[in-house]
Design a protein around this nucleic acid. Structure first.
Lengths: 351, 351
DNA sequence: GTTAGCACTCTCTATTATTGAGTGCTAACC
DNA sequence: GGTTAGCACTCAATAATAGAGAGTGCTAAC
């Protein structure tokens, strides 16, 4: 079934492509169902309204257009948008000024990775006028790079864990009084040597056991560290998700309806669900239109995400969430450009 | 003028107090203008609707009630709410179970101060059903407690700044290759000795000059540190503000209107403005009703904030932002209880 | 295959009527 | 004199009705 449909669709003749294109673009622009008359007036298609009507009827039969009600114009269906995105949409390139501004705003704020994520969310949302979703790497996958101790007071130390995602975790732990700064450095070295390269979740009992015997005289400190590590791991990475421009959702006329709005805002607030939604994509760049999103609450939204990564395996996604009636080509251009920038940033600032 | 008004109002006789009380409480409950008939039915005031009407007319003249339009019921004015809060509102004490749950949820999550702030925002919003606003201490006022370096790679070090507000700042800085971990500890000691006790903003040129001569051979590292310190200072403390339950705003029927909603969301999104709004209170516990808030965008909101502090001078505010039609007594009880908890936490976990 | 014409459909807007909660005023009551 | 019942009046909200307008599908002619 689906394949046949896909085949049929691919065979669209030039005129159908033209009409579909015009409908999608007009609807994206105006957010009102578009009729044959308006279409023929607004665009120079070289065919009469009646012919457009016929074509539209065909496109509707193929499932690319829909009618809200019998005597309204046509609206693109999810599959219609999909076809538009895959086959019809003209590529767009951002003008140099925009590019420069994005780059400037992204880099100037970010001296550290989590700041970069925050800045990305802001920049993305402002450049597209949609809501931005930025996903940091999963902490559980993170690999321990270094563990150090900083003496704070006689009986408190700061445990600093640096992982390979450039992120730094820290925790204040109790320390047996009298431990010296030199000792802390040494202990840090030993612990680092033992745990380095292990994922947070893969710190094995055996590695710990060995550590315990090696650091027998600093047992208390070690146990406190292990406990802190566990806490760090368990802390659900709220910071994993950065949002920007959530209020842009309100700008869309289709969400004037409080019902729909409420549904969407519920989704936004359940950060875990939002993470799942944004993480769902597997490919480098993913466009998900309406019901292509798993989450029911996003059935009237479109999501464009792109993966960023570093050689060391830092992996996350950035993207924008907007109405199905999204300016796909511009949003796509922005998202992919920001994706590049982040990749560059990661490469440059690799440890 | 104002004083006379205040005097007049203070002289309200028992019956007017009763009527005002009933109007405010009914409106808080129902969010519909309350009329004399409904009032006499719903509450047992012992007077007829006609009498209530007379009293209401008086209260309106005094500026404590308002009429949306000629033939609607009455709605409390800002001054009406104010009188209610100051004079009429019955004190409320939270039941032990709620208290216990708040305490549990607050402490279990927080091993560090910024986590505590996050947790506070969540707990506050869930306990009150309003949006929570939690303000951390101002970084600029923070006093440097300790500066340490952690060697990351051959040419990168982590600069860790611990301030007296329990907050930890860190930045990755370049380091001349070959610097040893031992050296870093030593440098950290020297820098700490020089800058400890100084506010971020008060790091004087002289102190730096002395440091420069003392650490002549590690000049590059020092300069990188100084630059990083500046950046830390300048970073507008986004993390200074923790929000919770922003979508609770949507639950309020008075904000069903997209216009009003948009205004409020704009405010929420401008974090700097929100900080200003929340920081505005000077007293221990502050209730600001509607137009008592400076910010125009908050003219239909009420804000309850409370100051928390530690002996070491950590100062911030926590609070809730909701509709003017707020359950002031319960919200107040929650806010002050959480305030206590935070004060306790700070005392216990002082360095 | 394309287009003009026409009857028909259905939403949207404006208008009007109706309802109902509420008020203010007046006069009677205790 | 304060309190209350009664009554005329007001005004938003609801419902009902009538057009208007944009759009469609079908048919027949080009």
């Amino acid at each position: 079934m689906l394949r046949q449909g896909a085949l049929m669709v691919r065979q669209l003749d030039e005129r159908k492509r033209l009409v579909l294109s015009a409908v999608v673009e007009d609807y994206i622009e105006t957010c009102t169902p578009v009729g044959s008359r308006t279409l023929s007036k607004r665009y120079n298609l070289g065919i009469s309204p009646a012919t457009i009507r016929n074509e539209m009827a065909d496109l509707e039969e193929m499932g690319l257009l829909e009618q809200p009600h019998t005597s309204a114009g046509r609206v693109p269906s999810d599959r219609g948008y999909r076809y538009y995105v895959d086959e019809l949409m003209p590529k767009v390139t951002l003008d140099p000024q925009t590019l420069a501004e994005i780059q400037y705003r992204l880099y100037v704020k970010a001296t550290q990775f989590d700041q970069l994520l925050q800045a990305t969310a802001r920049v993305l949302s402002e450049a597209t006028d949609y809501m931005a979703v930025v996903l940091g790497p999963e902490v559980e996958d993170a690999v321990i790079e270094r563990i150090s101790y900083v003496k704070l007071t006689e009986d408190k130390a700061l445990l600093v864990v640096v992982n390979d995602t450039c992120l730094i975790h820290e925790a204040i732990i109790d320390m047996p009084p009298g431990t010296t700064a030199q000792q802390l450095v040494m202990i840090g070295e030993i612990v680092t040597k033992a745990l380095r390269g292990l994922a947070f979740s893969k710190v094995s009992a055996r590695a710990l056991q060995m550590l315990r015997s090696e650091l027998n005289e600093h047992r208390d400190l070690l146990e406190a560290s292990i406990e802190a590590l566990h806490t760090l791991m368990e802390t659900p990475g709220y910071e994993r998700l950065a949002l920007g421009g959530a209020s842009n959702i309100l700008k869309q006329p289709e969400f004037r309806d409080t019902e729909k709005l409420q549904l969407i805002l519920k989704l936004i607030e359940r950060r875990a669900d939002l993470i799942r939604l944004a993480a769902a994509g597997e490919g480098e760049v993913v466009v998900r239109i309406g019901t292509e999103n798993r989450d029911q609450r996003a059935r009237e939204l479109s999501l464009i995400t792109a993966e960023y990564s570093s050689k060391r395996g830092i992996v996350g996604r950035i993207g924008v969430l907007g109405p199905r009636r999204m300016k796909y080509n511009k949003a796509l251009a922005v998202v992919t450009y920001v994706q590049e920038l982040i990749n560059d940033w990661l490469e440059k600032s690799a440890l």
